[in-house]
């Protein structure tokens, strides 16, 4: 297993920055997410988390710092949260932090929906 580091580019602002670090046990997704073929982008991230749970079996923190994600991306994020919820139910240590811009109240509703749909606790934090 290797870390995943994806940097952003001003020419493709619809791809988020990604940092998934095995040693730290921290997964961070930052920026905006509204690319085409969303699932193709998120599938390696989903597989990384599945592998981490299967092979590393240590605590995992997910930090989401997305100022915008389209509805296709929300489906992929929900998939990730469901995997983490299963890990937690299986005695894994998981923490999910969602950073939001306080001038964007719609994001708080979105996070509440993610909590309800996945069943995992999400800590809301202001940027």
């Amino acid at each position: 297993m290797e870390n995943i580091i994806l940097t952003s580019s001003p020419t493709t602002p619809y791809f988020p920055e990604v940092s998934f670090d095995i040693d730290k046990g921290i997964c961070e997704i930052r920026g905006e997410s509204y690319m085409e073929e969303t699932y193709k982008f998120y599938l390696p991230l989903i597989n990384w988390i599945k592998d981490y749970i299967k092979l590393i079996k240590k605590p995992l923190v997910l930090d989401i710092k997305l100022i915008y994600l389209n509805t296709s991306s929300t489906k992929c994020v929900l998939d990730i949260l469901e995997i983490l919820k299963d890990y937690e139910d299986d005695s894994g240590q998981v923490k999910v932090n969602w950073y939001y811009d306080k001038s964007d109240p719609d994001m708080i509703d979105e996070v509440e929906d993610f909590e309800a749909e996945s069943g995992i606790k999400i800590e809301l934090k202001e940027f």
Binding site: E37, T38, Y39, T71, S72, T74, K75, C76, L78, E117
Partner: peptide, 11 residues
């Protein structure tokens, strides 16, 4: 969203 087949179909 829960019932969407996902992948290329989105949410």
């Amino acid at each position: 969203r829960l019932n969407s087949p996902g992948e290329k179909f989105g949410a």
